[in-house]
Amino acid sequence: MSGFGGFVLRRGVGAVITLFAISVIIYVVFYATPGNVAQITCGPRCSPEQVHQVAQQLRLDDPLYLRYWHFLEGILVGQDYSTGTAVQHCSAPCLGLSYQSDQQVTELILAKLPVSLSLVLGAMVLWLVLGVGTGMLSAWRRGRLSERVLTGITLAGTATPVFVIGLVLMIVVCGELHLLPFPQYVAFTDDPEQWAWNLLLPWLSLALIEAATFARLTRASMLETLAEDHIRTFRAYGVGERSVIGRHALRGALAPVIALNANNFGSAVGGAVLTETLFGLPGIGQELVHAVAVVDLPVVVGMVLVIGFFVVIANAVADLMYAVADRRVVLA
């Protein structure tokens, strides 16, 4: 049962079980709430006929486990929906139909996904580079003025909500200095240069806060690694300070940073929702906020599931990377 292969397998099975449990919880929480589910699902402006139709579509007469099974069936093999006039087929990962637009939730998410991925992945590169760099620098300059300044900046960074940074950046850079136009999403496939310019501010606002968290962790982790015996040995052998910090200490210090990166993925996604809303980027986050505002339950449930999926995957991947980066980890 030991060995890396077994570890990967166990972690994979664990991730699948977690995903399944999350889908059950989300389904029960959203579709088994007390009160008239059809009415809530349909929204306050629905006519009695529409409510009746929704009740039929949700199969509210069936017991809960059958309804969940039906939902799961939709995700795994797809299902057919009657939209009143015609039957619509919704194939394999089917998350249902939007009550607002009758559009398939899967299609809706796929259409919005590139925007959100552009935002989160780009920002992630930025926050890792900024955060780890700042953390290393302040560990290296320990006790000097530059370290105190860096520590102060990172502390202020962790304390600023993402929408405040974004708002300030947008007002100063776009509104006052006119350095950039107000961001407007351009697809990467249309124009890579415009894509990057327009995402620059959203990337910065999302990345600055996360970078601050990473800088704090990298600094602490680095200082601890620097105090370990093998680093003293390297120094005793006459290895230069730059090489000690940049190569040997960094390797030991990176494991918790990787772990945090996955752990922070959930909060980064939350930050992405705020960033998208603030900058008007048409991503999953903005769509989720809209769906919440108009109580479009299939869209809300579908998006929460998809986001949960990404978070669970990120956690599992990080576990593996953690084990690879730090061989001292016990594979249990």
Binding site: T18, S267, L288, V311
Partner: peptide, 8 residues
């Protein structure tokens, strides 16, 4: 722990 607070 796996559920993102903001989203949920």
């Amino acid at each position: 722990v796996a559920m993102p607070l903001m989203i949920m």
